Amino acid sequence: MLSLNPWFDQENTIRGFQYMFRLAEFKGSDKGLLVNGEVKIVAQVDVLEVIGTLDVPPEKPKSIDINGFQVPSSQVESVNSLFEKYPGFASKVCLKNPHLRNKYLNDVLCLNEILCKSPEELSNGDLAGAYSALQCVTKAGFKLDWLEKKLKETGVTRLQEIEQELKDLKIKCADMDALLDFLR
């Protein structure tokens, strides 16, 4: 029988082994590890101390039905605000699975939050991710004209900023070229 006695605690956090036994030992008939093509592994774990309450299931957040979407209480105000401002934005959502419906609604909330930021706060990756997410939720049936408009405006603003940065860099480059020509 194979016996391992590793000790894991705060000071010794390395887990795992390069190997527990060699393949030859595993396949060898004299060791008895492989019997009739099957392996039975038995392990004993001694728990010295339990910290925390991992065995207690977390309390489920309460959800409220808003227009067929199960919304966590923490998002009720945001979702109500969306339905008040854009009453029909979710009227063509044809997803039957409630988890998918809620996931897409959450994506809409995230998009709305992201696009409320100033263009300076958003990276090019943020904009690309927002555009991709917008396409997904639109395919799911959400009517998000206002978000698409905001995304385009933000993209145009970002493009203008990049163009200005490029002009500034070209001027600096020309100045450096002139200085090099002068020094030669």
Rank of each mutant, 00 (worst) to 15 (best):
G37K: 04
R184G: 12
W146T: 09
I66H: 00
K152F: 11
D175Y: 05
I66F: 01
K117C: 13
K27W: 03
V108Y: 05
N36V: 00
P61Y: 04
K149F: 08
P6L: 05
E153M: 09
L144H: 06
E161H: 11
I51Q: 13
G28L: 04
Y86D: 02
A43S: 11
L48H: 14
K96H: 01
S132A: 15
E163D: 13
D30I: 03
L179T: 08
P6M: 12
D55P: 01
A178L: 14
F89W: 01
D65H: 02
L147I: 04
F142S: 05
N36L: 06
E77H: 10
A178Y: 05
E148I: 01
C116M: 09
L109S: 03
D126E: 07
R184F: 06
G141T: 05
E84I: 01
T157Y: 11
Q135V: 15
Q160A: 09
S81I: 00
V50Y: 01
R15H: 05
N36K: 05
K92Y: 04
K117V: 01
F83S: 03
K170Y: 06
L122Q: 04
K40T: 14
P57K: 11
R15P: 00
C110A: 12
K170A: 10
L147P: 12
K150R: 15
Q44P: 00
L127D: 04
L169A: 15
L100S: 11
S81G: 02
K167W: 03
K139C: 08
N67I: 00
L54D: 03
Q70A: 14
V137R: 06
E161Q: 15
D168Y: 05
L109K: 06
E59P: 00
L159Q: 12
K96F: 04
K92F: 08
V76K: 07
A130P: 09
M20Q: 07
G88Y: 10
D55G: 02
F8H: 15
A43T: 12
R101N: 02
D126N: 15
F182L: 08
M176F: 15
A128S: 10
V39K: 01
A43R: 03
E113G: 11
K170S: 10
K85Y: 02
F21C: 13
E49D: 12
L33V: 05
D145W: 08
V93G: 05
F21Q: 14
V45L: 13
C136Q: 15
N112L: 02
D177K: 13
F26Y: 15
C94I: 01
K62V: 10
E77D: 12
K40Q: 12
L2C: 08
L127S: 03
K85Q: 14
E148L: 10
S73F: 03
E121P: 02
N12T: 15
Y104D: 08
K150E: 11
T13N: 11
K31G: 01
K172H: 10
S123E: 05
